[in-house]
Amino acid sequence: MAERRQLPPQIRRVELARRAGSKPVVRYQLTVDTGVVDGKRKQLRRRYRTEKEARAALAEIQGQVNSGTYVQPSTLTIENACADWLKSRHRIRPTTAAGYEYVLQPVRSELGELAVQDLTRRHIDELLVQLREGTLVRPGGKARKAWSARSCNYMLGALSQVLDQLVAEGRLTRNVASRVDRVPGKAKSLQTFTPEQVQAVLRGIAKDRNRHAWHLALAGLRRGEIAGQRWTDIDLANKTLRIGATRVDVGGRALDQDEPKTAHAGRVLPIPDALLAELTAARNRQAAEKLALGEAYSDLGYVVCNEAGEPYHPSTMSTLWQAAIRDLDVPQIRLHDARHTCATLMHLQGVPIALVAAWLGHADVSFTMRTYVHAQPEALALAARSFAPPLANAGD
Rank of each mutant, 00 (worst) to 15 (best):
P311H: 06
E3A: 14
S22N: 09
A288S: 04
C342K: 05
S109W: 06
A227M: 07
R150T: 14
K261T: 06
E51K: 15
S315L: 06
A97E: 10
R209Y: 01
G21T: 04
G251S: 12
N393S: 14
P272L: 08
T192F: 01
A168N: 10
L221P: 02
D337S: 12
A308E: 08
P73E: 12
D208C: 14
F367P: 00
R174W: 00
D181C: 00
R230K: 14
N80F: 03
G301I: 13
R283L: 15
P139A: 07
P377M: 05
L335R: 01
D181S: 10
T246G: 14
V71F: 04
R182C: 00
R89I: 03
K261I: 05
T316V: 02
E110R: 12
G251H: 14
G244Y: 07
L111M: 09
E310R: 14
R209G: 02
N238M: 02
A281D: 10
V71Q: 11
G112T: 05
R4M: 11
T371I: 07
T368I: 12
R18G: 10
T194Y: 07
V330S: 06
A388L: 10
Q349D: 10
A17P: 08
A384C: 08
D164A: 11
I243D: 02
Y312G: 01
N210Q: 07
R222P: 01
R45P: 03
I234T: 07
R242G: 02
R138E: 09
A363V: 03
R5F: 07
T50C: 04
V103P: 02
E79T: 06
R19M: 13
E289T: 01
D84R: 11
C152P: 06
L114T: 11
T262F: 05
G170T: 13
V65C: 06
V198T: 12
R209K: 09
H212C: 12
Q322P: 00
E310M: 09
I205W: 07
D235S: 11
T319F: 04
Q229C: 13
P311R: 04
R223Q: 14
R93T: 05
H264G: 00
R19L: 15
L128Y: 04
V71K: 08
Y100R: 03
Y154T: 10
G350L: 04
D208K: 08
G204W: 09
S178V: 12
S178L: 12
L293H: 09
F193T: 06
S315A: 13
A146C: 04
H123W: 10
G112D: 10
K186C: 01
D364H: 06
A206S: 15
A354M: 08
Q64D: 11
E3S: 13
R121A: 14
T371C: 03
H212S: 15
A59Q: 09
A379I: 09
A282N: 10
W321D: 00
Q191C: 00
T50A: 04
I92C: 07
G301V: 13
F193P: 05
I234R: 02
